[in-house]
Design a protein around this nucleic acid. Structure first.
Lengths: 150, 150
DNA sequence: AATCAACACTTGTATATACAATTATTAACA
DNA sequence: TGTTAATAATTGTATATACAAGTGTTGATT
């Protein structure tokens, strides 16, 4: 649906301004969808994100700073998000022996299993959304988004 | 910058998945930029959004529900956001005399003046960002985003 | 007219982000 | 070696979203 219609906008805006608003709006729209699919599984989008980041390390640990760098919201509080995942038994948290300022985080089998279960639903949801774009369009969209960030 | 590089991603994802992640990431990136430009002016992105929505009504009032419908986050708490704007003297809040369940909100001269002052900075920021895309690219991006929402 | 449902908004709670201040540990170096 | 600076994480506070429950008002039905 057109952005103007969706937000009942009355003011006319130029192409660049429209793109900016649309990026913000569609990002939030997508994020809300993602969260709604994750909610029944008891984790938030950012917690899911952390689990995915850790899985990508194939068993190796990452410290909090390295996790933060890989997240959508760099300023979010990784300490507290990680603590929630730890309480659920999804990750392990060990003070780094070489440098006791650092904390090594790694995903546990329970976390991997949960991630796999959740991913099934998320993938299903993504497929529905993405059926609106051809592969070429998806590629083109990603390119334009990379470009807008400079 | 490429998304993979920006998030230090190691896993390879398909074009559709990449587009989805990129929409969420770039939306958050843009939103954070917007907020950083607004912060010195003492308002948040969503408060700014409400002021713009009200200005678009050219003097007419909107009730809370109508404002909510026009916002990026429909489930956000418009009552509390509006109250903050009222405390700053930017908007007027009147219980609707025809239907006392409704509350009419309209922008005050102080709000209009503030919006104008803030807009100068926001526009400047937008111009910098948007200089990365041609007008045709911006149009194409907005179209793809409309399409992804179905 | 009295009752009940729908409506519009408000309030409470959990979660999350942004940012600043603080703590603990390590590195630098005079 | 002792002091200071830098680093990594934690904690505190303000703000915002999501969602559910609650309040007051109006409309509908009998």
């Amino acid at each position: 649906m057109e952005l103007e219609e969706e937000l009942k906008m009355s003011e006319i805006v130029d192409a660049h301004h429209r793109a900016t608003l649309n990026v913000i709006f569609t990002g939030a729209w997508m994020s809300e969808r993602m969260n709604s699919y994750l909610k029944p599984h008891g984790i938030s989008e950012q917690q899911f994100n952390i689990l995915r980041i850790l899985r990508g390390q194939k068993g190796n640990a990452l410290n909090l700073q390295q996790i933060s760098e890989r997240m959508v919201h760099k300023m979010s509080n990784t300490t507290r998000l990680v603590e929630k995942l730890r309480l659920k038994g999804f990750i392990d948290r060990q003070v780094c022996p070489n440098n006791r300022r650092k904390v090594d985080i790694s995903i546990l089998p329970l976390g991997l299993a949960h991630l796999e279960k959740v991913s099934l639903d998320v993938d299903k949801a993504n497929k529905t959304i993405e059926s609106h774009l051809t592969k070429a369009e998806a590629t083109s969209l990603a390119l334009l988004l990379d470009k807008i960030r400079g």
